[in-house]
Design a protein around this nucleic acid. Sequence first.
DNA 1: TGCATCAACTTGTCTAGACAAGTATAGTTC
DNA 2: GAACTATACTTGTCTAGACAAGTTGATGCA
Lengths: 259, 259
Amino acid sequence: MKTATKVRSIASALVKNAGKRVRFASGKVAPFEQVKQHLKGRLAAGDWTPGALMPSEAELVAQFGVSRMTVNRALRELQLEGLIDRVQGVGTFAAQLNRVSSSLTIRDIHEEILARGHTHHATVHLVKDEVATATVAQRLGVIAGSRVFHTLIVHHENGVPLQCEDRYVNPECAPDYLSVDFTQVTPTHYLLDVAPLWEAHFSVEAGLPSAREAKLLGLKQTDPCLIVSRRTTNRGVPITQARLTHPAGRYQIEGAYKP
Amino acid sequence: MKTATKVRSIASALVKNAGKRVRFASGKVAPFEQVKQHLKGRLAAGDWTPGALMPSEAELVAQFGVSRMTVNRALRELQLEGLIDRVQGVGTFAAQLNRVSSSLTIRDIHEEILARGHTHHATVHLVKDEVATATVAQRLGVIAGSRVFHTLIVHHENGVPLQCEDRYVNPECAPDYLSVDFTQVTPTHYLLDVAPLWEAHFSVEAGLPSAREAKLLGLKQTDPCLIVSRRTTNRGVPITQARLTHPAGRYQIEGAYKP
DNA sequence: TGCATCAACTTGTCTAGACAAGTATAGTTC
DNA sequence: GAACTATACTTGTCTAGACAAGTTGATGCA
């Protein structure tokens, strides 16, 4: 029992598991799931106006004949989904607004291309130790004049340029960043290793490439691009800021929302 | 105790609650949270390579001296966050890939503009009962030749066109859709009322506007746009499909990721 | 009136044990 | 060797009860 790090061949198990999203598929539904679905249905039907007081855990226990832990789990998950608000000592309330929060997966470009069954290679166009200008310093979140690492890398899918990655890195967080071979490992992958716990803010917009980006991506400067800007921090300490430019038509972000 | 629908003034309670995100802030941390953070830290430190077998619940119970329910909650939440995979009958495994799933909120354009303190108005350019062409039918998910409702609305922020909303709606789900006054209520808001429980798939890309979109948004056809395509269904039944075109520079999607 | 106190109610969490269900392996039988 | 079986282990879930902590409203007192 001490072989905690033993790596089994679990591929088959995980594949089997993938098709098992709905447990108790054959009629049986777990009680906590029943409570959850019942409340979800009534919320959807408008039984409680936003902000209205909903039944307490004790009332639901009596109504469904299950234990409080079961009701509690149902309510906790509904709260996580943003459908209800709970206040200790007060009660449970229907959520104020129907906010729709979508889950969107941003993957390492290398893994993403490989997952499509295509080949990935990167060309490195700049690896430099710079002094931050005011603009760069503000975007990364360090003080102007600090040392920053700067890389400019183009990622290709099947030989076609797909992403121009213009990245600044805080030397404090990744002192050996400049010595990484970026044709072998992506900056994202390396930084995830060095500083694995981080928060990120990002924005997605359409725009035109800079002259250099256009040249590296094989575009005209009037060709539209999808531009993702991402800034990541670790407990408030800035790690990296990246501008990822993708030619329109070659790349799109996908996502899904499930209630 | 029977006044389940009584609406209390809970504004103050919810405001207080908002600042209470971290419970046990003063030193005390709930045991399940301790187990969670411990495993998170070791995962981040690379104690288990992706796919490696992690300690079983029983081992963690012995190690931390807590009950199995407590360990189970910690593991369940880690699974929800995508950090581990669990297979009944087999064990718990470190997740295969470090997917970074960002939470991205797509709000009703009306609410979004009002939240910025700006004025919103909509101009309606098309409200029509059509027969679905093959392309439209495929995008919406109905069979070609079906009746579909089609609206084309431009949303303005402070008088400037911000979004061209080209939408198809399944008449089965919203038979009265065409009689709605879209200068008063947005299609999103109306459809949320009619069919509140839905799943959505969306994609975000850069591209060029169609001739009509360019005209409605006051753009040249060579001006880049951010285009969001969204298709929503209710338990597999297609509700609506929308193409939301935003002029580059006037709109961006923002999001954040927290571990 | 104003203030302190207390009881009733709420949610938040933990426990120890139980049973169900899925998987893997060693052993047994054919 | 192949097929079956028993067993040990895993996760998934539920229960009944307990205590902590927060809120609310009534009560009593100055």
